[in-house]
């Protein structure tokens, strides 16, 4: 009996929650003449605990899809399900991380991390204790009383990740979260995220346009094309966990990368991007969402 318990502690049980079903989803953005199809007829099923990367050029609708999964955008057609339940508005069970941190500048690092607990009505002492535990988990002990502006970009993203994960989300949605970091910091953050994911096993949907990043992180890569955004290929990454330097330097990696490059270079897939003019904002109800997800 004890041995079984030990074993189950060593190898975490397969997660049972965090299944995402994206079922024939189309999303239209913009108003009037500027209205366009950002995402066309996308169907994907994501297993509980799976790490999926959305890879594609800018304007391919990968951020739009993420925004819909977060509950900030409503699909024009099709439906989104989390563990069989339709996705309504934004909720802490679907944590969202942007490329640039969205920490509250007026709260200390500690209060930022504890924010979700405060919204849930958790008491002060317990909030503090949990937030401190998360800060040490992301390697930020001793910074709890700093304001976000006093931290480096990498540290800000660490706080951001702790602030989202303290809510124990079933799904973690990340929109190029390490895109603004220097190469070394990015590598450290990727390893940190993989370590956190290995322990918690929430499902991850990770948007990137960096092929190496996708191949290093993902179980499965969905390659997307632009205008209208759709999934053109699905690549199951042929590598075990934990990912090692062998994988990153081996021939299988190179072959996968060559394949992804060919897909992304396809002239049909890189239609020049016409940005939405800020003057043609869509309806007021989703003005916030439109400003966050311009393409």
């Amino acid at each position: 009996m004890n041995a079984v318990l030990e074993l189950s502690r060593l190898a975490p049980a397969e997660p049972t929650t965090g299944r995402l079903d994206i079922d024939r989803v189309s999303i239209e953005l913009g108003a009037g003449a500027a209205r366009f199809t950002a995402l066309q007829d996308v169907s994907v099923a994501i297993r509980p605990g799976e790490f999926v990367c959305l890879l594609g050029p800018s304007g391919c609708g990968k951020s739009t899809l993420l925004g819909a999964l977060a509950g900030h955008l409503v699909p024009s057609r099709g439906q989104l399900l989390l563990d069989g339940q339709p996705i309504g508005g934004p909720a802490p069970e679907r944590g969202l991380v942007f490329q640039h941190h969205t920490l509250f500048p007026w709260l200390s690092v500690l209060d930022n991390v504890a924010y979700g607990l405060r919204m849930r009505g958790v008491g002060r002492a317990q909030r503090r204790e949990q937030a401190m535990a998360w800060l040490s988990e992301v390697g930020l002990e001793g910074f709890e009383h700093h304001y976000p502006a006093a931290l480096s970009g990498g540290m800000q993203q660490r706080v951001e990740i702790a602030r989202v994960l303290i809510n124990e989300p079933r799904v973690l949605l990340m929109d190029e979260p390490f895109g603004a970091l220097d190469a070394l910091t990015r590598l450290k953050m990727q390893e940190l995220l993989l370590a956190l994911w290995a322990r918690r096993r929430m499902s991850v949907v990770f948007v990137t346009h960096d092929i190496d990043e996708a191949l290093f992180m993902a179980d499965r890569i969905l390659v997307m094309s632009a205008r209208p955004g759709r999934v053109v290929e699905e690549i199951v990454v042929p590598a075990g966990r934990p990912r090692t330097a062998d994988w990153l330097t081996g021939p299988a990696f190179a072959a996968c990368k060559r394949h992804c490059l060919a897909l992304l270079r396809d002239p049909d897939l890189t239609v020049p991007l016409e940005r939405l003019s800020p003057l043609t904002q869509p309806a007021p109800a989703d003005a916030d969402a439109a400003a966050v997800y311009p393409d």
């Binding site: 802490p92 679907r94 849930r120």
Partner: peptide, 18 residues
């Protein structure tokens, strides 16, 4: 106000009044 800040706050469980 940065609309991303509002989006993040809603994803962290902030209600209308919050």
């Amino acid at each position: 106000v940065d609309p991303r800040l509002v989006a993040s706050a809603r994803s962290l469980g902030t209600g209308r009044w919050g």
